[in-house]
Design a protein around this nucleic acid. Sequence first.
DNA 1: TTGAAAGCGCTAACAG
DNA 2: CTGTTAGCGCTTTCAA
Lengths: 288, 288
Amino acid sequence: MEKVTIKQLAKKLNLSASTISRALQDSHQISRETKQKVLELAAELNFVPNYHASGLRKKVSRTIAVVIPEVADSFFAQAINGIEAVAQEQGFHVLIYLTHESFLKEQAILKEFQNGRVDGVLLSITAETAHSQHIRELLTRGIPLVMFDRVCEETAVTKITTNDFASSYAATKHLIACHCKRIALLSASNSLAMSTNRLQGYKKALQEQGFSFQPADVIACSKDEADNYSLIKALLAPPRRPDGIIATVEKQATLVYQVCQELHLPIPREVPVDGFSNLQPEPFHSPP
Amino acid sequence: MEKVTIKQLAKKLNLSASTISRALQDSHQISRETKQKVLELAAELNFVPNYHASGLRKKVSRTIAVVIPEVADSFFAQAINGIEAVAQEQGFHVLIYLTHESFLKEQAILKEFQNGRVDGVLLSITAETAHSQHIRELLTRGIPLVMFDRVCEETAVTKITTNDFASSYAATKHLIACHCKRIALLSASNSLAMSTNRLQGYKKALQEQGFSFQPADVIACSKDEADNYSLIKALLAPPRRPDGIIATVEKQATLVYQVCQELHLPIPREVPVDGFSNLQPEPFHSPP
DNA sequence: TTGAAAGCGCTAACAG
DNA sequence: CTGTTAGCGCTTTCAA
């Protein structure tokens, strides 16, 4: 029992390939009877239409790509869950690509998307991503792209983010309300819009509550865990120890605990400001 | 600047399409010069070979599918990370499918894989999955399939698992060595090979150490968190409270804590026996 | 309502 | 080394 094709169905039913094709697509111009017969035979012979053939012809793939830095932290895992669920509902397939924070990989991956493999892209950019030529090129080629979580301001595409400004603003105000006197901000990376927005929210809240912004209270964490560890250790050193901390990333919160334990310090009041903890994945829009 | 095809390159260089095709594939039967020219023009015109066309011709997709129940718990997230990394290295693409523990979905998803979209499948079966007709059918069609983590004994395919028997055996012995007198096993589901193997390991260790196996000490947890909660609560009720627990799934360990807190009980000595905590993803083998 | 024919873009014999 | 030819399997005009 070799691979069954439309042609074979056609021969067995004394019909033309085009009729079979139409019947399978439930075309309005095929008689009930014929459809019936075709569907039956197809089921019997276990016919599965070739994906590449129809893709080549129709120029669609019913596939979207999700390009993210990593799936390690629970945020992206959740995101995948949500995305896949919606995609499956809509009959779409989901390709996963990890950039591991490498801009070059991001470029290479997006470049390949010009080949018809995907109909659309969900992108959460690299921390390294500074310009967006590669993104604009995809768009030029007519491939819709939506940025989520980590977006890049300069490009004119749909962006899905939590309101970074608002969340760090709220977090800061919350800590102040809890009588914190010195609030530090653990920030992720400087180039991302997310980071700057959060920084702004933090500043705004401080200012409104009559605190002065201290650049030394903002720690720019990097990819290197060891570095971050040192930075946090320095931050928590007694002389100017903060009594409140806003952590921008899950991992950093953990580091704070570690450092405190090691230094036998009381754990400061901490507020994590997470990516998308309450992400409601947007429904996809199939291409029109 | 419309989509560039091989034909266009051919015309511009006064060569045939086949020559271009060969040059792009770095065929041994094309002159240095020609290759050079072709590559240059291709780069200049930003040529990207059509995926469906070559897929249709060559009957490959350079794509593998990963079919898992959920990506929620960190295990599968890690798995995806590893799989994608290896795939990317080998120039493969990764499709993700979630079954949400539904056997019907699993079936439907595998069925579609007969259409040429994927070259291979990594499957971690549903808790519901009882028979393996759908799996065997895929294999018949020449699509390699590897089961991981949650495997199904009856099928003759490569399986990647931690040694379930050994790990629960070791865990049980460990608890006995810690002077535990009554050791409970929180088991996941009865039909999975993983569960039965773990149960065997547990029994073996008990027996070897002169303990008698008590069916009541094995709790078969279900999908329903609330149910599990009740079961664990009953288990931990004073009369025959275990002083050691082997938890088969991450989630269950958490439940135990919750129940103990609520009941103001001391937390029993607990040993989690996790899926693949130390999974070293196997390198893929591209099809020969 | 159905069929014939052409072609999506690429690759692989088979020649030369 | 390069060109010619013939499809991969399906969809879609255009005719009948």
